[in-house]
């Protein structure tokens, strides 16, 4: 339905009005699509637009009624304050810390999750499905109740005030990523694996040479979501990074800009907008990769 009607194979229409009717239908359809996209996009963008415009407003103007969308007085003060590096708040250091903390562990985590997902999807072994359900069940326990025991555990390991509690667990593969990757891999034709086995490849080889390349869209998606989660995480760093300034993440730095003068809305919104930029670039890059993705026409191969 939505793959466009321009490449269907059909017999030529037998009169001109048929042709024109179809052309009009096509145009109306395109207009409808655009209208929906613009309307939907606008609704989704609205709060973000408010964030953006607020970041350029003077403090008093933020609370005016009716809402002012376009700042009467544009100001860059909020951004200046955001980037003014002091010994307490340094956005660049915060950004660097976040990247170091999130990227390697996410990459490793995505791969280990993919390996496990491959096993759950393609290899037969006793108890497979029950164990898989068990994994999903672990996602069900509300995380906050394990906050205290987890903290005590990391404390015993002397990992508090380091990045370790925020990096290491993720490297072992998360239930959510395993779940999603498994769903995808179940859709990969098993004939591919059969063929590889006939050629003498073991499971390890099949994983790296067949599954991973075919699952790239999913792996990149997992990486993106894993990165987003770690990047925007606020409670984890708040709990474990209470000491030195040099370890704090970007989100922590931004929230440090509040003080006794209350929540500085303009600065916080500026911070939120700036923080979105790296993730936006990541998304644009990832999207090209996985959406323009790979289709399964390689059955014969």
């Amino acid at each position: 339905m939505f793959k466009g009607t321009n490449n269907t194979l059909q017999a030529l229409p037998n009169n001109l009005s048929e042709q024109r009717k179809r052309k009009i239908k096509r145009i109306l359809y395109k207009i409808f699509l655009y209208a929906m996209l613009v309307l939907g996009g606008f609704i989704f963008l609205l709060p973000f637009l408010w964030m953006l415009s607020t970041s350029f407003k003077e403090y008093k103007e933020i609370f005016t009624v009716p809402i002012s969308w376009i700042p009467k007085t544009w100001t860059l003060k909020n951004y200046e304050e955001l980037f003014a590096a002091s010994e307490y708040v340094n956005l660049w250091i915060g950004f660097r810390n976040t990247i170091i903390m999130v990227v390697p562990s996410t990459i490793v985590g995505v791969l280990t999750a993919a390996l496990a997902a491959f096993s759950f999807a393609k290899i037969q072994f006793p108890g497979r499905d029950k164990i898989f359900f068990g994994f999903v069940a672990t996602m069900a326990i509300p995380g906050i109740i394990t906050m205290i025991p987890s903290y005590m555990l990391y404390n015993k390991l002397h990992w508090t005030n380091t990045w370790l509690p925020l990096m290491v667990p993720g490297m072992f593969g998360g239930a959510s990523a395993i779940f999603f990757t498994r769903q995808f891999m179940l859709g990969i034709p098993s004939s591919l694996e059969e063929a590889a086995k006939v050629d003498g490849m073991g499971w390890w080889g099949i994983f790296w040479k067949i599954e991973v390349p075919l699952s790239m869209p999913v792996l990149i998606t997992n990486f993106m979501f894993g990165f987003l989660g770690g990047y925007n995480d606020y409670t984890g760093p708040m709990l474990y990074l209470t000491g030195k300034m040099e370890l704090k993440t970007l989100q922590q730095m931004i929230s440090m800009l509040n003080d006794t003068a209350g929540t500085k809305w303009g600065v916080q919104m500026a911070g939120a907008c700036i923080a979105t930029l790296p993730t936006l670039f990541l998304y644009l890059f990832a999207q090209r990769y996985f959406v323009e993705g790979i289709s399964f026409s390689g059955v014969k191969e």
């Binding site: 939907g40 996009g41 989704f44 963008l45 709060p47 973000f48 964030m51 987003l228 925007n232 606020y234 989100q251 929230s255 916080q268 919104m269 911070g271 939120a272 923080a275 979105t276 993730t279 936006l280 998304y283 644009l284 999207q287």
Partner: peptide, 13 residues
């Protein structure tokens, strides 16, 4: 990108 922007922002903001 437009539709995805909400998910990119920090949920606190």
């Amino acid at each position: 990108a437009l539709f995805f922007i909400p998910s990119l922002c920090s949920s606190v903001a």
